[in-house]
């Protein structure tokens, strides 16, 4: 995919941080590439014809780029990237996408972030880039161990919803939590992760009176 020309899209892998057996963070040399929190990049090994979309996990002002990746069982790129060693060269295209927050809303708006699994990545970036942002984050996972780097968020702002163990702040899916804890109609809602969750949350938010233009979605799969 030709987005940036010549070799200016090559970046070095600085560090690989394992968060669980399957999920890891890649820290990548930024090389001055600017982006807006919520955007994603196309990432692959240098020279490979395969790349995939990954939301930027790090903040707009960080010196490096980070992405949060879960190795998918039948996957290709998520497996390849996990095997890389610091110093390897990666290829980045982008940044791309419109899952961003209007600058004028960052200070004044009230936000709900709803993620499943690694769908928390863009929210991690929002929180790092906009430390004063007023938000509530619902993170839906199967087990507590998938609460990726939860200390990045103040306890009262982060609700871990676990569907397969009882160790979360809430036992059940994010959709169950949201039904029981409605939001006010002036909330700006950002949803990221699998399409079933997003589909359901759209309906719930509609019933709670949130206008469609305040609901933003980033579908991973």
């Amino acid at each position: 995919m030709k987005l940036r020309s010549n070799n200016d899209n090559q970046h070095q892998l600085l560090e690989l941080r394992h968060l669980t057996e399957s999920t890891y963070v890649l820290r990548i040399d930024r090389r001055g590439l600017s982006f807006r929190s919520g955007q994603h990049i196309l990432l692959g090994e240098a020279g490979s014809i395969h790349n995939r979309e990954y939301s930027v996990y790090s903040g707009e002002k960080d010196d490096f780029f980070e992405v949060l990746i879960k190795e998918v069982d039948e996957g290709l790129v998520s497996k390849q990237l996990k095997k890389l060693k610091p110093g390897s060269t990666l290829q980045i295209e982008g940044p791309l996408g419109f899952f961003t927050i209007e600058p004028e809303l960052v200070d004044s708006g009230k936000f709900l972030f709803v993620a499943t699994g690694t769908g928390i990545a863009p929210f991690h970036s929002f929180v790092r880039s906009y430390p004063k942002i007023k938000y509530q984050l619902l993170h839906g996972v199967r087990k507590e161990e998938e609460a990726y780097e939860r200390n990045a968020y103040p306890t009262e702002k982060y609700k871990l919803c676990t569907s397969q163990d009882e160790k979360g702040d809430f036992q059940g899916r994010v959709t169950d939590y949201l039904r029981q804890n409605p939001v006010s109609a002036d909330t700006h809602c950002y949803l990221c992760g699998n399409f079933q969750m997003i589909h359901e949350v759209f309906d719930i938010l509609e019933m709670q009176g949130v206008p469609p233009h305040q609901v933003h979605a980033e579908v991973y799969f």
């Binding site: 589909h199 979605a217 579908v219």
Partner: peptide
């Protein structure tokens, strides 16, 4: 709605 999400269209 489900297919539009899978298509990653920009509207519902």
């Amino acid at each position: 709605e489900a297919i539009l999400l899978k298509m990653r269209r920009m509207y519902t």
